[in-house]
Amino acid sequence: MSNEAHNDAYPWRDRLDGLESLPGEAGIDKAAAWEKLGRRLHGKQRRRYAAWYWSAAAVVLLAVLLPALMWRHPQKGSLVVTPPSPPLPAPVKNVVVKTPPVTPAAPEVPGRKQPALLPHPDTATGEALAAIPPAADTARSVSSRPIPSFDSMLARVTTAPVKKKIRVVHINELNDAASQAAIDEEYKPFKIKFNNPSGFASQTIVGSTAQPERPSKN
């Protein structure tokens, strides 16, 4: 059906289609409606422009600050010229240095405090390292610290804390509190008294690891 034929079939169609308001009815408040629509149309645009302004400002700020920051902190890969180290002190002979047991380097655990690097006794570099006074500033120490030789790098070890050995005493060896005190200086007698007078005699428990004797079920 063509439009012309359609119009012939429904001649009132154009009148209905062209209707703009009903008689006796208030029209639309165009100013209010446009304000609402205009806010939707142009509000987002303004926000988009604001985002552009902020990003441009951030780029300019970075461009200004970045050279200043780079000027203050030289890059790690740059060559640092260290002043010549002071003459080493004469080696001291007949000095016995107790070294802790050497253990292989454990993998670094985050949050775990690494033990201090001890100077290696056998190498001259170790003594040289020991002779250098501790620096206050880390950055300064990094720049003034002499680069250790390859051997000393290999000898870099970690020290594990030495476990305190506790002397194991057999129960039969315990005679009284006084003798125990002689054996172990940290010994503290601990007595358990039972309320029942006809019950057991007082018992002495040595150490926290000693298990009290359980009464047999039979």
Binding site: L16, G18, L19, E20, S21, L22, G27, I28, K30, A33, W34, L37, G38, L41, H42
Partner: peptide, 22 residues
């Protein structure tokens, strides 16, 4: 142009409202 958009809206809004109301 916001002014031109508003002009178009003012001209066409009545007719379009009646279309929607149908």
């Amino acid at each position: 142009s916001a002014a031109a958009q508003q002009g178009m809206f003012d001209r066409l809004a009545d007719g379009m409202l009646m279309v929607c109301r149908r």
